[in-house]
């Protein structure tokens, strides 16, 4: 029998996500999928899954769940958080970036994320919800995919795929860390010519702050409004993830995983795919800058990023014996830095 998770407390927004629903944007179906794709791939690698297995994307904190029907192997990646595992009356604390085995009946509680607004919890065997249009990603707006097309709620039971423990639990010896300053590289266009030269210069020269209006669809930025040559409106065309669209207010919106497939606002630039996970991790209040790159530089940056991810996955090693120290306490003492980011000037 395969194990399940019985959700006791869901967290602010925990959704089932994989690497996205590709191939149906022509029908108006958004891609969705993990905001931090590399975190999902790393978490899956830690528990021995294929890269694209569905896991749980966690925003800010949580969830708390009970493991039923069998033991589970899990790993958190993308942000640091205390993972408390309670078996009987004994509670142990662990950190992110490592797999751990939890027995049937264990209660697992994930605390607040630090270093990123989102993280991914992978479970050996993957979250086994039905495939919808080829993916297990949750489409929150469309109300399908994932766990009944919505974020997790208390009382949900999430089936996991079958798995067999093969080998010891793995850890990532040197978790990725980012510098404080967040710079998103972006390619000008497709409608850069809708803006004045001054607006284009300002866009790449001025820091922007992530506003409170930030979710899986996109994040609205605060900063100097950008001026149009004529108007913000274009004949609607296709939108890529990372597109920076600018409505009449002149304030840019960076479109993320759940963005709509087409739209009628001019797009000044597009965040390159290598930096999209960084954008997905940002929290309201974060200061960011944009740096212009060419398409070719963007493609090269993606190859570099893929090589880094491959190197991280190749570096996974069995959890060191004797490392039974309270990892979460270490993180809280700030001896080990998290992944990211962005809140330093908040």
């Amino acid at each position: 029998m395969s194990p399940s998770l019985h959700i006791l407390q869901p967290g602010p927004q925990t959704t089932v996500q994989d690497l996205g629903r590709h191939g149906f944007q022509a029908y108006g179906v958004p891609v969705c999928g993990a905001l931090d794709g590399p975190a999902l791939r790393l978490a899956n690698a830690l528990v021995g899954n294929e890269a694209g297995c569905a896991g749980l994307e966690i925003r800010l904190s949580g969830p708390t769940f009970e493991v039923i029907g069998g033991p589970a192997r899990l790993a958190l990646a993308g942000a640091q958080a205390a993972i408390e595992v309670t078996v009987g009356d004994e509670t142990r604390r662990y950190g992110a970036w490592r797999a751990l085995d939890v027995p049937e009946g264990a209660r697992v509680r994930l605390g607040a994320l630090t270093g990123s607004g989102c993280a991914v919890l992978a479970l050996a065997g993957g979250v086994d919800v039905p495939l919808v249009l080829g993916s297990r990603a949750t489409d929150l707006k469309g109300g399908f995919g994932g766990n009944e097309g919505r974020a997790l709620a208390a009382g949900d039971r999430l089936p996991l795929g079958e798995w067999a423990a093969q080998g010891p639990c793995l850890e990532l010896p040197a978790p990725p860390r980012a510098s404080g300053e967040v710079t998103l590289r972006a390619v000008r266009g497709p409608q850069a010519d809708a803006f004045t030269e001054a607006a284009l210069d300002a866009f790449f020269a001025t820091p922007y702050r992530v506003s409170r209006e930030a979710d899986r669809m996109g994040m609205r930025l605060e900063g100097p409004p950008l001026a149009f040559r004529n108007s913000a409106d274009i004949v609607s065309d296709g939108i890529a993830t990372g597109a920076i669209q600018v409505p009449g207010s002149g304030l840019p919106i960076v479109l993320l995983a759940d963005h709509q497939t087409i739209g009628g606002y001019a797009k000044i630039a597009t965040v390159i795919s290598a930096d999209l996970p960084l954008a997905g991790r940002l929290l309201p209040g974060a200061l960011i800058r944009f740096r212009a790159v060419t398409v070719g530089e963007g493609e090269e940056a993606r190859r570099v990023r893929e090589a880094e991810i491959a190197r991280l996955i190749a570096s996974l090693a069995p959890v060191r014996e004797g490392a039974r120290i309270d990892e979460a306490a270490l993180y809280h003492a700030n001896l080990i830095s998290g992944v990211v980011t962005g809140q330093e000037s908040g």
Binding site: H22, G23, F24, Q25, A26, V235, S236, D237, G238, I239, A240, T261, I262, S273, V295, G296, G298, E299, R302, R303, E306
Partner: peptide, 21 residues
């Protein structure tokens, strides 16, 4: 990867690890 038709343009999604613009 996939294409997204709209009124007057076609958005072509590609995998930069397998081809280039």
């Amino acid at each position: 990867v996939e294409t997204v038709p709209s009124f007057r343009s076609l958005l072509v999604h590609y995998d930069p690890l397998r081809t280039s613009a």
